[in-house]
Structures are given as structure tokens and as C-alpha cells.
Design a binder for these strands. Structure first.
Lengths: 336, 336
DNA sequence: ATGAAAGCGCTAACAG
DNA sequence: CTGTTAGCGCTTTCAT
């Protein structure tokens, strides 16, 4: 392995000069720089980055903790993170936790051991106090996930308002009996989406029964199963708002299998605007989250933090948008 | 930052002993070990992993180069890689290339600079010679992607045979005019899938015209567009084999929009068995690739290579399987 | 079983 | 603008 001192020797300069050529070329006289560069070329020298990391005590690497990379919502966010990172010369260390909190604690050790310069957390299993502690010592950004009352930079959408908007859309279409399939209530995101749903219901004085809110777990199957429960009611709902697109699709499948037409007999709205929501039949009406941009923004905030910028603002709320397609029946309604 | 020498001082031992307690505890007398461990606990000591990496010239990190992490086929493979890696105490550095070969060359520098101990390549844009060179110097495994006649450890399925099987399935169902929407022919995977398709066609003496093979690019839209071309033929095909599920779905959409029923008027088979293929209506008949297992196996091979195991075998072919659902009409056929 | 000490390759403070 | 030099914190060889 050819090293810096080899280059220095052959170029007749000191290692300091070689180092300067590499890290701040403008401080070296052009002649010297050219000479050094040509020797670097000639010897095919590659700097030992591990030595640099060690010496500088930084790695140009960020840790991204994801509950499940196979979920398209997360993989899009990660796509945005990676893009922003690589533009700035940063690398992404990916850790998939499978929602196991032990894996998250393990991952945090990477920060403590300085293997990474910062961290983006797409999950919220860790205790509030732990996250707070960590974020006071190291650059940390939360994306998509967020934690109530925590002054840690967070990039997300306004889950409450978007859910309210989705629900109000169903109300405007004339529905009087609207159900909600929420995600695991362990997660604040789910609780917020329930909150937005409830706000719309109460503000519009729509009838409500607790049986009209059922808890799923963001999977297709859970949407299917919770919908079956609604269909078994004496008076089933005429509209359902599901906390994500997969559950909305599951709910539609259950409805169809029970002879209901969507949207004619049952209106459905989802959440996330995953790629397949427009391919699905009927195409899903849903709340579009800017997943890629969320990742990008989170990485940009992290970069600033790592540069030492202190943010007074800690919540960055990106725009979400109701995408009206077929599953809610709005287009049919317009025709009337 | 508390360091090893601090621990050593307080525990009244040398740094060598502390290091041994950390890396090969069995070589240290139990008493000493306990004492050191308690001091480590007490001081909340975290070893500086950068120093370790530097000193040992290894990082316990592998580089994963992905064309597009937002594509579920790749994110599942990455899921398998991450799982196998973290079990063995390895970390995953993720690089998304967006299919830009410059990004791949950049990524390779990470290997040369020893920032990672090995690499898994899910893409095949690099020149054969480059990959060969790299793989002779560093541990490298190809997954999913593969390159003809290259003796680099590769984990994949048999794309030729699976495509032949998919096509033969359509032939067995009685189809005499079968079209194929292939992926970008730049990729060997696409060319192999065409090859398998052709084998089935010729072996069964089915009529063939070159217009019955159209090139898409693995996207839903390209499937849609190529299907429109088929529909415009004087004698359109009665069956289509698409080189991935997304294009199969696009093709079905085009067919439906033109008044055809699937599978009654047009049978369709896809490839990959992505999650959504069973949700789609009609549920897609497709070739199931063991994506997660592919990633896992690739990582396991890489781990062995990094340990110095030399593999005589270089091609690891995993089982793929034809999953018969609704879009091909086989179930209807059985009823007759 | 433990300690002493060299040194991995680079960076940066300081001097000139 | 360039050189000298002192480490960064750990691992490992060689002694004991």
C-alpha cells in the first residue's frame, strides 16, 4: 500500500504538503501542487481514509435508523437522504431495526463510538429521554417519526391536519357514518391521525361510536380484517379513512369480497400516496406525503447541525396534499 | 472522552490488558477481567472504534451498491443483506447510484481507500474488466445482477429457465400467439429473460414475429405503452409475458382500457413477485424471486470471502418458482 | 497472565 | 508557501 510519505519522498516535499494538496489545494503553490498531483497519479496513491477519520475524529458518515427498509415509505425517505448525503460527500450507514428497540440501542452505540458523525431516526421506539440525551450530545434529526414536546429537529408533515382534511373530504361528500382504521397506537403518528379524524368528526357533528375506530398495524391484512369488523356491524359505515394506503387497499378488498362496490357503496381514503395507490383499482384517494423530500430535508438539517449551525426552530413541517382519485367517489359526485 | 489509558490507570493495569479484556477476554485472568470491566462500566468507557479500524485496517463494514433503493426488488435484497450483516456484527454502507455509472466508480473508491471490507453489487453497469480487477483485489459479490463469463461470486436465480417456465405455462394454457415485454436490453438479466422466452417459443414451435417482442424499461408506464403497441397489431397476441411485475400491471391496464378482460381475453404473466402482485386485480401470475434470501446469501458469501475462504464455485443459483394466480387464466382453465 | 512500547498514516499547530 | 514534528487511541509483538 503506497502511503503519503512515499508520495512526499518522490515529490521531494513533506507529507504536510501532500496533505495540503489533498485537503486545501489553494494553499499550495501551483508548481508544487502539480508535481505532487503527478506523483499521486504515477504511484496510484489512495489516501488511507481510516487514518484520516481517526486523526480528524470524524467520518463523513451518517447513520440512518429505519424500522423496515422493505416498506416503500421508508425506502423513499432513505432515497432522499442518500441523495442529499452523497451530494455533500457524506456516506449513509443503514440500520434496519425491524422495530426491535434493542437494535436501536445498539445502533446508538455507533454514535457514541464516533463511527458516524450524526444520525437520522425514522423510528420512534426509543424512550423520549434517551433521544433527548443523545440529541444533546450528537447531531440527530428525526424524520417522519416525531415525538411530542421534544426539542429535537424533526422533519414531518402535519399528520393531524392532513387526517382532518382527508376525513372532511369524506364528510363533504355527504357521508354521515365514517370509520377509521388506525395504525398501531404505540406510534404517535397513528395517534395523531386518529386525532385529526376525530377533529373532523366532532367539528362537523357527525355521529360517532367508538366501534368505528379500529386499530390495525399498517399492513394490508390488518386493513382487510378491520374492514370485516365494520361490515359485521348492524349499521356499517359508508366511508372509511385508513391511516395508510396498504390498509386502505386491504379494506377495499374486504368490501369487494362482501359484494360492496367502491366507491359506490363504500368510499375509502388512504394515506401516504405510495406508488401503487394510483395503479390500484379503484385508484386510491390519499394524502400525499413528500417522502423523498422529507429525507432530503432531514439530511440537509443534519448537515447543518454537523457544521455547528444551531437551529432555533425544531419542527419542520412539509406540505402534504389530498390527492383525489377514484376510491372516494368524489369524481362521480361531481358528475351528479 | 474517556479513553483506554484512563481505564488502565484506574484499574491498575496496562492498556494492553484493557484491550485484551475487550477483544479476547479469555486470555485475561478472571479477577483482572472483572476489575477492568467494572472500571469500564464505572467510567462509561466506549472504545474509539475509529482508532481500532485504523490500527487493524478493517472496518467491519460492507458497501452495498444499489441502482435504486426505492425499487422494492432492491429494497428487499438490501433487507436480506442488512439482516445477515448485522447478525455478524457488520455494518452496511448504502450507495444508491440511480443507474449512473460515475456513481459506481466513485463508490469503488471506498473499497480502494479501505473504508469498507467488501462490496455487494446489485447493478451491472460497470465494465466487466473493472469488476474483474476489483474482485481480484477485494472481496466482492454480485447479487441479482450478473455478468456473463465472469468468475466473481454471484447470487442470482436462473433467469433463462424461469422465463422459459413462465412462457411454457402460457403455451400449456393453449396460447399460440404470445408476446414479450422485455426490460432494457442493456441489462443481461433482460437479455436472459428474452432468451428463456425464445427457448419456450421455439421448442414448442409456436409462431413468432419480431414485433411480438418489445423493449420496456421495467416501469409501469413502459408496460402500458408496449402493450398498446401489441393491441394495435392486426392480430394482437392472446398472452403476454412481461419481464417484471410492474410492466405486467401496466400491460393489464392498457388491455383493460381497450376493453379486453384479463385473463379471459388476454393472459398475462409477470416476474419478481413483488408484494403488490398478489393485491393487484387480477392477482398476477409471476415468477417468485427469493429477494430477501438472495441478499442474505450474498452477504454470507461475502463474509466468508472476507474471512479468507476461497470459493471454487462462483455461481450460486437460488430457486425461483412460478406462482399461479389469476392473470394467466390457469384457474379458469382448470374449471373447464 | 501481564506490561512496555512501537507504530498504524494522517493532520495541524507551529516555526521558519 | 513549506517543513518539522507531535500526537490521535488503539492493537500487538516481544519480554518478563
Amino acid at each position: 500500500m503506497v502511503k503519503m510519505s512515499d508520495v512526499a519522498k518522490i515529490a521531494n516535499v513533506s507529507t504536510a504538503t501532500v496533505s495540503r494538496v489533498l485537503r486545501s489545494p489553494e494553499t499550495v503553490k501551483e508548481n508544487t501542487r502539480k508535481k505532487v498531483l503527478s506523483v499521486i497519479e504515477e504511484l496510484n496513491y489512495q489516501p488511507n481514509i481510516l487514518a484520516r477519520h481517526f486523526r480528524r475524529n470524524e467520518t463523513n458518515t451518517v447513520l440512518v435508523i429505519v424500522p423496515n427498509i422493505m416498506n416503500t415509505v421508508f425506502s423513499e425517505i432513505v432515497g432522499g437522504i442518500e441523495q442529499a448525503a452523497s451530494i455533500s460527500g457524506y456516506k449513509v450507514l443503514l440500520r434496519n431495526t425491524n422495530r426491535d428497540v434493542r437494535n436501536e440501542y445498539e445502533a446508538i452505540d455507533h454514535l457514541k463510538q464516533r463511527q458516524v458523525d450524526g444520525m437520522i431516526l425514522l423510528s420512534e421506539r426509543l424512550e423520549k429521554q434517551t433521544i433527548l440525551n443523545i440529541s444533546q450530545q450528537y447531531p440527530v434529526v428525526l424524520a417522519s417519526a416525531y415525538i411530542e414536546g421534544l426539542k429535537v429537529p424533526t422533519v414531518s408533515i402535519d399528520n393531524i391536519s392532513s387526517s382532518r382534511e382527508a376525513t372532511e373530504h369524506l364528510i363533504k361528500l355527504g357521508h354521515k357514518r365514517i370509520a377509521h382504521i388506525c395504525g398501531s397506537l404505540f406510534s404517535l403518528i397513528s395517534r395523531d391521525r386518529v386525532k385529526g379524524f376525530n377533529q373532523a368528526i366532532y367539528q362537523n357533528e357527525i355521529q360517532m361510536e367508538s366501534v368505528l375506530i379500529q386499530e390495525g398495524d399498517f399492513t394490508f391484512d390488518s386493513g382487510y380484517n378491520q374492514m370485516l369488523k365494520f361490515l359485521a356491524l348492524d349499521v356499517p359505515p359508508t366511508a372509511v379513512f385508513a391511516a395508510n394506503d396498504e390498509m386502505a387497499m386491504g379494506a377495499i378488498k374486504a368490501a369487494k369480497e362482501n359484494g360492496l362496490r367502491v366507491p359506490e357503496d363504500l368510499a375509502v381514503v388512504g394515506f401516504d400516496n405510495i406508488k401503487f395507490s394510483s395503479i390500484f383499482e379503484p385508484a386510491l384517494t390519499t394524502i400525499a406525503q413528500p417522502k423523498y423530500e422529507m429525507g432530503k430535508k432531514a439530511m440537509e438539517l443534519l448537515l447543518e447541525q454537523m457544521k455547528g449551525v444551531v437551529h432555533t426552530k425544531s419542527q419542520y413541517v412539509l406540505d402534504s396534499k389530498l390527492i383525489i382519485r377514484e376510491s372516494c367517489g368524489a369524481k362521480m359526485a361531481e358528475l351528479v
